[in-house]
Design a protein around this nucleic acid. Structure first.
Lengths: 342, 342
DNA sequence: CCTAGGCTTGAGAGCGCTTCCATCGCGTAC
DNA sequence: GTACGCGATGGAAGCGCTCTCAAGCCTAGG
């Protein structure tokens, strides 16, 4: 076991060069092949690791990025949307050899913001921006900390973000319902006040209007939950609908239960569509037509966007709109046996 | 908007005191009431925040702790055990105003260990120690980084850990099955090589032996998954059992499916017991008898143990064994209508 | 009146690293 | 032979904070 080396100076003495040269070897500065080899040998033999705090202090970079998902951990960990996002993020960040600090909704947004900015330790941050009104997101954008949003509000046009086009996607799926001949198409919205929820309403209305079909009385408020889907579906069925487009898949799952409870068939009596294509969508009975958005991919893309930002300081913002894909299953097209049609 | 103050020196100049005094005000040193008030006023007016890297470098403490759960994020995020653990941890850590860095199984254990020790930025670390053989855990324990384990191996007797007594708990639940008159009690184990899995086998065997009942041919290997429960139950049913104790609740869920598939009744033909009492256990049909361990509480307790360690450097290790509770539901005692008996 | 002791405060020495700048040596061009 | 350019290297100045030490002041006791 080699003598425990704790500082660059000690390492430098062992290699017979100056501290500056060792630093160059570690950080990829210009060093002659010979010197580099010698220092590298000592580096490996002693398993020396530079002190992160010192290097952060001297360089202003830490190699640590923050991930902020400000919602109750209880909700977060059982929502496949957020866990997939987190999964995509952790993968991409690990790939970039960056450390990750995590902030969830354990404290108020103000406290969280304060703590993040307080430490001035992060190189940048990825934050979910799903609510129209969010002081945490506003605070991060207003700070000088490089920030990438997942989702974005109207006001965030100049920020860096990763998102999908919820309006267009909702239009496509509503149009699909119209295409299969439905006219009384109800919509159980996502949680009001969220960007995704409002945009999907807009897309739904847009498709309905284009087809000259009235949407009066066909919208009920949901909350991205199965419970709100059960409730919403009951209401819509009372009003007489032949199709329901739900704010997300969990909502559709709930709606399906209510439809079943009335002994109505899907899609015979009521066609059903969700949004997200999370894992269980394909396993419902009947399998659910939905709009696939690569949530994990969104997380990974956000991480990539952040690294792009960090590498090109002063460059413009980076905006990524990821594609969505209509996945048609038997909840709307009963004839097709499972899977996607050709 | 006040002038942006970035260093203690600037803040000191503004308050008419020295940098040292400002540092004392921030860190709770001894300062006269009058001076403290004056500095505090400036502190709040300027919204000054000390630089975390500098303070870490100077003091050797960062206020950041690591959480290491080295398993595939894919598995982690859909296993209620790990998400509950994470939830308990994040809550307790946020409560202590500590930052949290997270490492999951995105890279090899060796790389992860290397990265964690590399940065020398953490005050301490909480790590899940569920496998008998784990170089990551060994490496952390061997380092000088204060470490708290969740779960522990025989060899970890001298480490700090939070755990439950799996042997005793498995004994209790097996004894319960014996008490209700079952003799051919099968056990579908947890994943072999995990501490919990092996200990629960030991507890099961211990109870069987004490009652003088043979356990020959009544143990089949499981993997803490529903799939392994389905498989294992089929095998045990072939061998003729009147009860099955499963390594965890997910396994029991799978076993229940297989029992049902053979038109056998629970608990009439076969009594069924799980372990953990995760959310869905009470929602199965019939509701599942299981051993409740407060997983979220384990996470919180681990965080507390770590802070104890940090406050009492040089003190001994801190070991916490949390209680478990037998929750009797209708999968073993058919007469009782739901819930726990008096 | 002098001294001991307690409390507050400032000076200053690091913490371990990055990075600018000056120096050195060498090869090439004139 | 001299001048110049260029890559490699070392010296040293910080980065912003903590914390020890000593000085200064005041009170109380002898």
């Amino acid at each position: 076991m080699a003598f425990l080396v704790r500082t660059l100076d000690e390492l430098a003495a062992l290699s017979g060069v100056s501290r500056a040269t060792v630093s160059r070897v570690i950080n990829g500065g210009s060093v002659s092949e010979e010197t580099r080899a010698r220092v590298t040998e000592v580096l490996e033999r002693t398993k020396f690791r530079p002190n992160a705090a010192a290097r952060t202090l001297a360089s202003g970079r830490s190699g640590v990025v923050g991930v902020v998902m400000h919602l109750s951990p209880h909700l977060l960990f059982q929502d496949p949307y957020f866990t997939s996002l987190l999964q995509g993020l952790t993968d991409a960040l690990a790939h970039q050899a960056a450390g990750m600090m995590l902030w969830l909704g354990n404290r108020s947004k103000e406290e969280t913001l304060d703590q993040i900015l307080w430490m001035r330790l992060l190189d940048g941050v990825v934050v979910t921006a799903d609510h129209l009104d969010d002081p945490l997101v506003d605070g991060l954008l207003a700070s000088d900390l490089p920030t990438v949003l997942i989702g974005h509000r109207r006001a965030d046009r100049d920020a860096s973000y990763v998102d999908v086009d919820n309006v267009a996607a909702a239009d496509v799926i509503t149009t699909h319902l119209l295409d299969i001949g439905r006219r009384r198409i109800g919509h159980i919205t996502g949680r009001r006040g969220t960007v995704a929820g409002e945009d999907r309403i807009a897309g739904y209305l847009q498709a309905m209007a284009r087809s000259g079909v009235s949407a009066d009385d066909l919208i009920v408020d949901g909350a991205f939950t199965a419970a709100s889907g059960r409730e919403g579906a009951r209401e819509l069925l009372d009003r007489g609908v032949d199709a329901i487009f739900c704010g997300n898949d969990a909502t559709a799952e709930g709606a399906l239960e209510s439809i079943r409870a009335r002994n109505l068939s899907v899609p015979g009596d009521v066609a059903l569509a969700g949004f997200d294509d999370v894992g269980f969508a394909a396993r419902l009975d009947p399998p659910l037509t939905t709009m696939r958005q690569g949530v994990q991919e969104q997380g990974a893309e956000a991480a990539r966007a952040l690294f792009h930002l960090l590498r090109h300081r002063g460059g413009g913002p980076r905006r990524v709109i990821l594609p969505t894909e209509l996945v048609i299953r038997r909840s709307t097209v009963g004839e097709t046996k499972g899977g996607r049609p050709p």
